[in-house]
């Protein structure tokens, strides 16, 4: 139900004031029924549409909040049509429209529902593979077989007993 439709109903309600009491009551009840029965979801559904080209998601909480406010608005607007034809009817409609802002501010959905940015996508982790056992070079094995120590730990060099001397393929440098 859009604002123009509401205005049409307001005019019909105002015209009804010239009718007899029973006919006036019938017209106003019909208007209230029309207000309550009208579908209202379509307009709300567009709120919070994500801008083009961005991977974004509708802000569900905000949209739900707007939806509640819209329902309250419709209930309150339906009550306006029982007013007499002077401008208090328009005041009722105005206050109902303004109250949407107040309710939205109170409930935390003032303004347009901003789409949420995409939730962080998990970075694919490389599969955990068992670390290969360090291979030991033949030279290292030879070194160890004669009581030496591999240098670096996997070889291929053989450490000298004198730690101040550099490793060499053949044991202590200079040997």
């Amino acid at each position: 139900m859009n604002q123009e439709h509401l205005d049409d109903l307001a005019r019909a309600a105002a015209r009804a004031d010239d009718l007899s009491l029973s006919r006036r009551t019938a017209v106003k009840l019909a208007i209230v029924a029309a207000m309550v029965a009208a579908p209202f979801g379509a307009r709300i559904a567009t709120a919070g549409a994500a801008p083009r080209g961005t991977a974004q998601f509708p802000n569900t909480l905000c949209l739900e909040c707007k939806d509640r406010i819209e329902q309250t608005f419709r209930r309150n607007a339906a009550r306006c049509f029982t007013r007499p034809r002077i401008f208090v009817l328009q005041w009722c409609a105005f206050e109902t429209a303004a109250r949407k802002y107040i309710d939205a501010a109170k409930e935390g959905c003032f303004g347009k529902c901003q789409p949420l940015s995409a939730p962080p996508t998990p970075v694919p982790q490389p599969p955990i593979t068992p670390q290969p056992m360090p291979t030991v070079s033949d030279e290292c094995l030879n070194c160890m077989s004669v009581g030496g120590k591999c240098c670096p730990p996997n070889g291929p060099l053989c450490a000298c007993a004198n730690a101040s001397l550099p490793c060499s393929r053949y044991g202590c440098a200079g040997d």
Binding site: E4, D7, A10, I86, F87, Q90, F94, A97
Partner: peptide
């Protein structure tokens, strides 16, 4: 009163539009 009615109606429309 009708002028007030007319201005309030315009106001309602503008408010509803701005809200949307």
């Amino acid at each position: 009163g009708r002028r007030v009615q007319r201005d309030l109606t315009a106001c309602n429309r503008a408010l509803a539009h701005a809200y949307d």
